[in-house]
Design a protein around this nucleic acid. Structure first.
Length: 473
RNA sequence: GGCUGGGUAGCUCAAUGGUGGAGCGGUCGUUUCAUAAGCGACAGGUUGUCGGUUCGAUCCCGACCCCAGCUACCA
């Protein structure tokens, strides 16, 4: 049995989840379910990026101890995943001292042994908002960072450890160019290639305890420093499957078959991460699937704009599958798409209530009246669905399924089964039931709850049931 | 500023170097198995602007305008 290891990006837990997180959860879950249903041995991982300094700041602001703060926030993300019927097999917390700490320290030691970690005094412009050092050419005309215009940068000097990213420029270029580490979509791959060609600089991978406020994974062999963000956060993909503590498990699952991420963190996944793994002598992930973002009225969601949409009330109001459908069917993963509840409601009525739900209801009723007994479930994957998971174009797979729904509706109108009887009627019903079974079967990775209602309803004696998706007024 | 993506019917998007398509919404007709659902029909949009290449461009080239994103701690 083939293993398939997929990771969802580790949410940054300094703030609450928004619909964008929900989108990625659902995408990862659909991919994982598809491969699981294909008979592969699948593991889907997510977790909490908890060691970042912003968490410390946010916790202080909230007046809550750091650990309690990250536990609470991470839990909120996990709860959201459950509400969306997303099945994470592993939820790895970055602040877990037993599992994650030793794993990140091992990774550090491997890179250190390879001679890729060195200490040097670093003097730089530090943005307190970003918790990051910038070089002059990374700042706007006023010498401020783009994320926090109006905020003056501090000149800070401290000794940090650095990772020799510059040594891996040529190797990375080859690996990405050849698709040995495949970046999807193509335009993101090209973006990364040109970034690598423009030259890579070494990056800082530690902070003093003071700056880190004693939060995060201690640097092995130097208790005055903590491992800094990305070196540690990316390693959750490994620590969650036993790296550094359970070799058997790690060897079974690593490397990741797919990392699912949003475009905002592509550099770290496309460049930092493979370089770190190369240094440590570990296998590289196979595919990086980079999705775009939700916008609201054409603009990015941001705290400063105050246009962040909380998915939780939406799931509670409409249920997981309607949202999953809207996310997966009505957006291209490779293009920003505008999210709106009004549009969602329109889609709900048109596609779910009038389309899928109504078809299931009308066929069920026709069968019930005839005491029709279903033949075995028709178990065939649609070509559109297979293709959509190969290419990560979930919207196209669902479009294919909705084509089947339209064809079934057309068939009913054409054959008018309510006017038929006997042999002729059962032939039509048999055909219709087969179609509904096919639809239910293919719906499983996308709308698991709905599929789990349709398939049992259309086996054995078929009975009418309450509407799958009551029409919204 | 640099880089990326995009500007096509009310909305969301697709398409090809050769008389501009789909879905949704809307309008009209029709059916009754069904969730006031289904089916059928209709929709005239100077395909961002200006030039160029071409027998011919929405699709190729150039310039420009507009929108969005990334610019090293964003799903």
């Amino acid at each position: 049995m083939n293993k398939f290891y997929i990771t969802n990006a580790i949410p940054y837990v300094n703030a609450a989840a928004h619909v964008g997180h929900a989108l990625e959860f659902v995408q990862s879950d659909a991919i994982a379910r598809y491969h699981r249903l294909k008979g592969e041995d699948v593991l889907l991982l997510c977790g909490g990026d908890e060691n970042a300094l912003k968490n410390v700041q946010a916790a202080e602001e909230a007046g809550v101890p750091i650990q309690e703060f990250v536990d609470r926030n991470t839990q909120a993300f996990y709860d959201l995943s459950k509400k969306l019927n997303v099945q994470f097999d592993v939820w790895q917390k970055g602040s877990d001292k037993k599992t994650h700490y030793p794993s990140s320290q091992k990774l550090w030691e491997l890179c250190d042994k390879a001679g890729d970690i060195y200490k040097k005094p670093y003097k730089g412009l530090y943005c307190v908002g970003c918790e990051v050092f910038y070089t002059k050419d990374e700042l706007n005309k006023k010498g401020e960072c783009y994320e926090h215009p109006g905020k003056k940068l501090e000149e800070v000097s401290e000794e940090n450890y650095f990772f020799k990213l510059s040594s891996y420029q040529d190797k990375l270029l080859k690996l990405i160019e050849s698709d040995e580490y495949k970046i999807i979509p193509e335009f993101r791959k090209n973006e990364m290639l040109s970034l690598i060609k423009s030259g890579l600089s070494d990056f800082s991978i530690s902070r003093t305890n003071e700056r880190a406020k004693n939060w995060g994974v201690p640097v092995p062999g130097d208790d005055s420093q903590r491992i800094y963000v990305w070196f540690d956060a990316l390693n959750i993909y490994q620590s969650g499957i036993g790296f550094g503590r359970d070799d058997e498990k790690y060897k079974k699952w690593w490397p990741a078959d797919v990392h699912v991420i949003g475009k905002g963190i592509i550099r770290f996944h496309a460049i930092y991460w493979p370089a770190i793994l190369l240094s440590a002598g570990l296998p590289l992930p196979k595919t990086l699937f980079v999705h775009e973002y939700f916008t609201v009225n054409g603009q990015k969601m941001s705290k400063t704009l105050g246009n962040i949409i909380d998915p939780t009330p939406l799931v509670e109001k409409y249920g997981a599958d309607p949202l999953r459908y809207y996310f997966l069917a009505k957006f291209s993963p490779f293009q920003d798409g505008d999210f709106s509840e009004d549009k969602f409601r329109e889609v709900y009525n048109a596609d779910l209530a009038n389309g899928l739900g109504n078809l299931v209801a009308r066929v069920a009723k026709l069968c019930e009246k005839e005491n029709f007994e279903a033949p075995d479930t028709y178990k065939v994957w649609c070509a559109d669905v297979d293709k959509s998971f190969e290419e990560f174009k979930f919207n196209e797979g669902l479009r294919g399924i909705w084509q089947l729904i339209a064809e079934a509706d057309q068939l009913i109108n054409a054959r008018e089964p309510w006017k038929l009887a006997g042999e002729e009627l059962s032939k039509v019903l048999k055909d219709l039931v087969k179609r509904v079974q096919e639809i239910g079967y293919n719906l499983r990775p996308f709308l698991p709850e709905t599929a789990e209602k349709i398939l049992p309803q259309f086996s054995g004696k078929i009975k009418s049931a309450p509407p799958l998706f009551p029409r919204l007024q």
